[in-house]
Structures are given as C-alpha cells and as structure tokens.
C-alpha cells in the first residue's frame, strides 16, 4: 500500500486515470560511449535510470549535444547500450509497436501523403481499402484533409510534420518516440502542433517520449520532464508536471519551472 501511494504522488494527479500504471520501458544504469576519430572514448550517456509509465507524455530536455537523440535510439534499439539494461514491457513488440518521428526526412519523398501515412500498414500487408480508410481518418485528425494526394515537397514544414505524426500513429504504436519534431518550425506553427499533439495524446493515450531543447515546449507538453545534464549526460532532474491544461505560459508556476530548468541546463554549461 505504501509503495502504491508513493507511486501515485510521483506520477501526478492531473489525470483521472487509475494511478497504478505499469511501466512500459525501464532503463537501468544505461550508458553509451562513442569513439571520436582520434580514438578517444567519450561517454554520451552515463548511468541513466528511467522508468516510463504507460500513457505518459514524457519530455526529455537538455542542451544540444547532450545525447537526447542517443537516448531515443537506445530505446528504439537502433543502437545498443554499452552499459546497463533496457527492459521493455512484455507486451511491447519492439519491431512493431514503437514509432519514431524524426526532425527531418521522415516521409518518403516519392509517395503522396496518403501513401506515406498508410506506409506502416502497407508493410503489415493490411488490405488497401482498410489501410486507406485508417490513413484518411488520421489525415483528417492531424488537419491535413484535402492534402492526401500532395507530395511531401509540396507541403510546408508544419504540414510535413503533421503527416509524419499521422504516419507514426497509423501503426497504433504503444510507444511513440519524437526527436525534436518541431525543431525547425516557426513559433506559430510550433504552438499549433503542440496543441495538436496534446489533443492526440489525450485521445489515444499513446505513451510518448518527446525530445526537445526548447524548455518552454517541454513544459507545455509534458506530464513529466527529464532534464539531461551535459556530457556525460546524466539525468539531472526528473520533474512531474501537474499544471492544469491548457497551460498558460505566463502563469507563475510555469515560469518557476521554466527558470528552474534553465538554470540547471545553463549552470552546467558554464562549468564545462
């Protein structure tokens, strides 16, 4: 009982879901090195302990070059950890239920939006009519209705990322990884897409790990923020955000958290 209560406090209380969430992925003492051209080994990630609960929207924030992308790649098993252990929930099928949205080049340039969104379903050999229906629903959801025949190069940056999100969600992932997906968008588009992502998350309850260097974005989106310090990246702080949504960027609590995170990231930089 005691443990359960602690867990409940940790995961925040803003959602009205049951508080005992099974963890979907757990990282224990995970480390990753990489070797420079001169042969020097540099630790990119060091002793990372992380327990992601089902349904959470977790943002990972840190300065550029802190190994945020590496963390996602480890989780997606694109690369292997040098130390430690990554445990996936038994129900999670690594090659079928983890979707990844990149910052760039995340659509097939030779196919239109519809085919791009349906791509994951096509790989699963789902009949064309059904996959097109599913894809159309998602295209509608991300606000691209009417653009399903357009090619990626005909879309704006924001629309491309909308399509990319639809493409990722089409396979109904249990875990959605996003690597600075809004990194190259202008402020207005970014805000719009953040709002859309929050909506989609509320509807689908897909566990999401969202990497960004934008502190503001991290707070707006997150149920929980993981702050990475710089080289070697250790987890500096793990903050549960339970501000009510929609969040007000100018509210006192918001700015307090903002400043706290900013100080954490910048002090470390000065020392470096």
């Amino acid at each position: 009982m005691e443990r359960k209560r602690i867990l409940a406090v940790n995961t925040g209380t803003h959602t009205s879901k049951p508080n005992i969430h099974p963890s979907i992925i757990r990282l224990e003492h995970v480390g990753k090195d990489f070797t420079t051209e001169s042969g020097k080994r540099i630790a990119v990630l060091d002793d990372i302990n992380l327990d992601i609960k089902t349904g959470q929207l977790v943002t990972v924030v840190g300065a550029t070059g802190t190994g945020k992308t590496t963390l996602l790649n480890l989780i997606a098993s694109i690369c292997k950890a040098d130390q430690g252990r990554i445990t996936l929930n038994k129900t999670l099928n690594i090659c079928n239920e983890i979707a990844y949205v990149f910052q760039h080049y995340t659509l097939l340039p030779w196919q239109n939006v519809l085919k791009n969104v349906a791509f994951g379903l096509q790989l699963r050999k789902i009949p064309i009519r059904q996959r097109n229906d599913d894809a159309m629903k998602l295209i509608d959801k991300v606000g691209l209705a009417g653009f399903e025949k357009a090619y990626p190069h005909e879309l704006s940056g924001g629309m491309r990322q909308r399509a990319a999100i639809a493409q990722a969600l089409a396979i109904k992932p249990k875990l959605l990884l996003m690597d600075e997906p809004f990194g190259s968008l202008d402020d207005t588009t970014r805000t719009e897409l953040q709002r859309m992502l929050i909506d989609l998350h509320r509807q689908t309850q897909t566990t999401t790990i969202f990497v960004t260097h934008n502190i503001d974005e991290a707070i707006i989106l997150a149920d929980r923020i993981v702050v990475l310090a710089q080289r070697p990246a250790v987890i500096q702080q793990d903050i549960t955000i339970d501000l009510p949504r929609p969040r007000n960027r100018t509210s006192r609590q918001f700015t307090d958290i903002y400043l706290k995170i900013r100080n954490m990231i910048t002090t470390k930089e000065v020392i470096e």
Binding site: A99, F102, H104, Q122, L123, I171
Partner: peptide
Amino acid sequence: NLILLGKTLGASKVQIFVR
C-alpha cells in the same frame, strides 16, 4: 533516415530493399 523510418515502422529486410 529513410532506412530507419522503414525499420521503426516494422519493415523486414526485403521490404526495406523493395520499398
């Protein structure tokens, strides 16, 4: 990136080659 995209969307080796 496109190869990673295919992999994360669950493509087999043959599918990555063909698609």
